[in-house]
Design a protein around this nucleic acid. Structure first.
Lengths: 110, 110
DNA sequence: GCTATTATATAAGAATCCTATATGTAAGGG
DNA sequence: CCCTTACATATAGGATTCTTATATAATAGC
C-alpha cells in the first residue's frame, strides 16, 4: 500500500480516468482503483464522496440517482465534456512531476 | 510550475536526495530543487524550514550552525546514516506510485 | 435472525503546502 | 551614504486533501 503522504493528490486523476471509460457510482470507483492498481492505491469512501461533490460543483462530473436491479439506490457519476477536457492537461502535469523526480531524486522509471 | 496539489509530498524526497550528494543549508536546497527541475518544482522557504525541523527531530538530518566566509550565519544540514537508509524505500514507493498511475490513469512515462 | 456485502453520508482530526509577515546581513549602484 | 537586491532564517494563519470513526440502510446467504 502506498502511504497517504505520497499518493496525495492522485484521487482526482484516478476518478477522472476511471469515469472516462464508463459512468460509475462511488463504491465501484473505489473498488476499481484498488483492483486496477493491485491494491497499491486505495481510497476510503469518506475521501471519495466529498471529492465527487467538489468535482460535480466544478462541472467536471454529473451525478444522477439510479435504482439498480437489486433495488438499492445509488448515485451514478458520468464525465462531462468539461471534465474530459481537464484530463489531458492533468495527465501532462503528472508526467512532468515524474520527469522532475526522476532527474532530481533518481526515482526509477521501471 | 507544477501545482501544490500535485507535487504534495515530494519535498521530503527532494531534500533527502539533494542532501545525499552534499550537506547544504535551507536556502541553497530550495535553489537547487528549482534549478535541477528547471523550475517545474519549487518550494517556498516557509515550506522547507518546518520540514527540515521535523526531519531533524526524526533523526534523518542533522543541522549545525556555520559562519560562512561572508560572515552570514546559516544552518547547514547533513544526512544522517538513518536518513540515508530511508532514501531507498522512499524512492521505491514513489516508483510504485508512478507505475500505478501509468496503468490506472494512462500517465505518460516519457 | 445474524452477518457480510453493498451503498451513501458526515464529523473531527492529521499532514503538507501556501501567502504574508518579520528580522537581519552583505553587496552594488547612484 | 542611502537604496535596492540578494542572501538567510523564522513564524502565524489559512487552504487542501486524506484519514479514522460513526451513522444509516438495503440485500444475500446461512
Amino acid at each position: 500500500m502506498i502511504r497517504p503522504g505520497i499518493k496525495r493528490g492522485t484521487a482526482e486523476l484516478a476518478i477522472l480516468s476511471i469515469l472516462e471509460e464508463e459512468p460509475l457510482h462511488g463504491y465501484e470507483i473505489a473498488r476499481r482503483i484498488e483492483e486496477q492498481t493491485k491494491g497499491k492505491l486505495r481510497f476510503t469512501l469518506a475521501s471519495l464522496y466529498p471529492l465527487l461533490y467538489r468535482m460535480e460543483q466544478r462541472g467536471w462530473v454529473r451525478g444522477a440517482w439510479e435504482n439498480s436491479a437489486s433495488g438499492r439506490r445509488r448515485r451514478c457519476y458520468r464525465l462531462t465534456p468539461q471534465g474530459r477536457k481537464k484530463l489531458a492537461p492533468l495527465r501532462l502535469e503528472w508526467a512532468e512531476l515524474f520527469r522532475a523526480l526522476r532527474r532530481l531524486a533518481k526515482v526509477a522509471d521501471a
